[in-house]
Amino acid sequence: MDDFSEIKIIESHNALNLESYLKRKFKQYRHPLFESTEWFLLPEFELRYFTNNEYQKDNDFMKIFNYRLDV
């Protein structure tokens, strides 16, 4: 457990689509020891996407994040 850390929690009404988007965005960083799309080894410059809230500048991310069916 010491080798893993939570990076960021982003709450959204459209979490499933955001998860799919992020998995596609970071697919080249999938952890090589697991045959899964759930674990990633992100380099420091990609971690900033989350730690510095750079995802807020990602138009595709924000489009999914802000999409609401109940409008």
Rank of each mutant, 00 (worst) to 15 (best):
N66G: 07
T51V: 12
F65L: 02
Q56A: 13
Q28F: 05
F4P: 00
N53I: 07
Q28M: 13
F45P: 08
Y67P: 00
L22P: 04
R24T: 09
K63A: 01
D58L: 02
F26K: 14
L33P: 00
K23P: 00
D70L: 06
A15C: 10
N66A: 10
Q56K: 07
F40S: 04
K27H: 08
I9W: 12
N59H: 12
F45T: 07
N52F: 06
Q56E: 03
F26A: 15
E6D: 07
S5H: 05
I9Q: 10
N14S: 09
N59L: 08
D3C: 03
K8S: 12
D70G: 09
H13C: 05
F34N: 01
I64G: 00
D60G: 15
N14Q: 11
I7K: 06
E6C: 06
Y21A: 12
L42Q: 09
K25N: 10
N52H: 00
L16A: 13
P32R: 12
R48A: 14
Y55G: 01
D3S: 07
F40V: 13
E35C: 13
Q28I: 10
D3N: 08
F65P: 00
E46K: 11
R48C: 05
K25T: 15
K63Y: 01
E35Q: 09
T37G: 14
N17C: 01
D2N: 08
Y29R: 06
L69S: 14
R68H: 06
L41Q: 02
F34R: 05
E46Q: 12
E54V: 02
Q28P: 05
P43Q: 05
L47G: 06
E46L: 12
H31F: 13
